[in-house]
Design a binder for these strands. Structure first.
Lengths: 186, 186
DNA sequence: GTCTATAGGCAGATAGAC
DNA sequence: GTCTATCTGCCTATAGAC
């Protein structure tokens, strides 16, 4: 791996972490450069603007999401895939209590901006919805699959906001149990 | 009404609008002063800092929420109160598609900050949860009331995020219908 | 009470030596 | 490819005339 790739990757990783923990708008290029241990002026060799870093972070998140889905897609059990999706929210519930859901926070913040960035963020959430819909279809839910996917994703996003607001992972843990039970009844 | 009250109220109203439409962090005191038609330097006669404006906006939102609840509390029909709450989200769905839910956006953004402000925002959402729980108790749901309130509020907040992300009020409209049906079954 | 002018600091972005 | 120094502009906040 070349140095170019290495530093670039470190900057994206640092930006992703800070965007999640502090928010995109508050995070400065100096913050990112400092965390990535890259001199501020050097950032502009890898990214032409803050906006292009944001886009790179979105694409990084896309890869991460696709990897998670790929790791669950190998499961034989149809409902097990959706259970894994829900349980993943429990795994990250402490971070969610401190900083919110990474994807939800990003969409919330970027959707108020105009242009390319808001669109890019929305396609991320769309991929999540599509994957869930695919799982429900594999369960034979047919036309209902879209609605079920919408219910699942919005429920997890909503409880993530409450978990952040009240700074308590219990909200997410409890709602996940409810959703796993719900999964058996639909 | 004194001039003091008038200008102060205009500043709070302008800040509330801009915080919702752009986000708290992006909004500058110059933006607020301009929209309220108050000279920038004069803002500091009414508020000692940006933080104190944010707190004033939160308290303004609290009054608004309490007024809405009071207007629904006069309804005789127990379920009708909760239906009014849900239908209110439909009424504001176009704004939600553009700027997100006002309360949810505020909590999302402020919860990542430390200190007094995050706490103040969380008590707003808590009041909403408490009101819903009270309504479910009036319906005789007893111990289940807290869980039901949590389901209702998180579902509305989650779908508000999707509505914003995909810039389409339909998400909120559809989910509201689902929730009103759900209300009959619980 | 009101408003202009501006201080002081920090943001994004660039120039140019190495 | 790398990094220091810095430009330019905007932000919060203040000073002080009226």
């Amino acid at each position: 791996m070349s140095k170019r790739t290495d530093k670039r990757a470190r900057l994206i990783e640092a930006a992703d972490k800070l965007f999640h923990e502090q928010g995109v708008n508050i995070t400065t290029l100096a913050n990112i450069a400092s965390l990535a241990d890259v001199p501020l002026g050097n950032v502009y060799y890898y990214f032409k603007s803050k906006e292009s870093i944001i886009l790179a972070v979105i694409e990084q998140r896309r890869k991460l999401i696709q990897q998670q889905f790929a790791s669950w897609d190998v499961l034989d059990n149809n409902k097990g895939r959706l259970r894994s999706f829900i349980e993943h929210f429990v795994t990250t519930s402490p971070q969610t209590a401190s900083y919110g859901d990474a994807l939800g926070s990003l969409c919330q913040e970027l959707s108020k901006q105009t242009g390319e960035i808001a669109l890019a963020a929305s396609t991320l959430l769309k991929e999540v919805l599509n994957w869930c819909e695919t799982q429900f279809k594999a369960l034979g839910k047919g036309e209902k699959s879209e609605t079920l996917a919408l219910n699942l994703v919005s429920s997890l996003q909503g409880i993530s906001l409450l978990t952040l607001t009240f700074k308590d992972p219990k909200y997410l843990e409890k709602q996940s149990q409810t959703l796993i039970q719900w999964l058996e009844t639909v």
